[in-house]
Computed example of a mutant assay.
Amino acid sequence: MATARTEHTERRGGTEPGARRVTRRRSETRARLLDAAFTVFAAKGFGRVSIEEVCDAAGYSRGAFYSNFASLDELFFALYRQRADLIAGQVADALAGDTAALDVPASVDRVSEVLLLDLDWLQVKTDFLTHAAREPEVARTLLPHRARLRGAIAERLDRARTPLPAVLGDAGAAAHAVVAAYDGVTTQLLLDKDVDHARAWLKQLLTALLTRDGDPRSP
């Protein structure tokens, strides 16, 4: 006769692998839906996409969609959150260093590369910002993700004690200025599609913002 402990072990052994498979399968389904949605949103725009189009692109039924997302809005926000967190992590990595000192020109180069590589992302992000501007509740959920990007920049500037132009004030204000410069440059980029020009212009703006008199050699 099996003991209570044996029965418990057998039950665990019989259910856990299946549960893991279900969890992994659902995770893979969700990831495929997000990837498909990114492609479709970038091509057509958020307001012109239906759930059916996302499902067709991912190769799933509406049932698979609704087992992961309650609505297209929820999927859109999950997609934004996924990409925004990725970008914030990339920026943090680009600013990371073994020493406290920050090489401003080199860091500006790395950040410019990270922030300007994906035109599809810029189109999706712009759609989401426009959507959030009309929906206060959506805007409130968006704010922490933009704050994370600013926080990654501010933390690095503060840790390095980088001398900043007096007009900017502290590292937090400088981070706001960096993100504002990025937003401005990418608006033009969405129109002319000239990534090389946008990257060069962003580097000039960030260098001017983060160094005294716009000279990276200034103390």
Rank of each mutant, 00 (worst) to 15 (best):
S27N: 11
A154P: 02
D170I: 04
M1H: 14
E53V: 15
T162F: 03
E113F: 09
D35F: 09
A174I: 02
L149I: 11
S107K: 10
R146K: 07
A100P: 02
L119I: 12
L72G: 06
A70C: 02
R24P: 03
T130W: 04
P165I: 03
T3F: 10
T207F: 06
V179F: 00
L206W: 06
G151R: 10
G45K: 11
A166H: 08
A64T: 13
A92D: 09
P144N: 08
R159N: 04
G184K: 00
F69W: 03
E155M: 08
Y66P: 05
K193T: 12
A152T: 14
A4T: 12
R32P: 03
A43E: 15
S71W: 00
P163Q: 01
A166S: 08
T99R: 09
D196E: 12
S112P: 03
L86I: 02
W201R: 15
A106P: 09
L206A: 10
D56V: 15
A96K: 06
V91D: 03
T6G: 10
A96D: 11
G184Q: 03
L72N: 01
L205D: 07
A181M: 04
A92W: 00
H197R: 11
A208Q: 09
D215G: 06
V108E: 10
F38D: 13
P17I: 11
V40I: 13
R25G: 10
E74L: 05
D192L: 05
P216H: 02
T130P: 00
R140F: 06
A96M: 07
D127G: 01
L191F: 02
D98N: 06
R217K: 05
E135K: 08
L149R: 07
A139N: 12
A19Y: 12
W201Q: 15
E16P: 01
P219T: 08
L79K: 10
A31M: 05
R161P: 01
V49T: 15
I153P: 00
T15L: 15
G89Y: 00
D183I: 05
L122W: 11
A177K: 01
F69K: 01
R48W: 11
V104T: 15
L142C: 08
A160L: 05
K193I: 06
L95H: 04
R199T: 13
R161M: 08
D103A: 09
H176N: 05
E28F: 02
P216S: 08
T3G: 14
L86Y: 09
A96V: 07
Q204L: 13
Y60T: 15
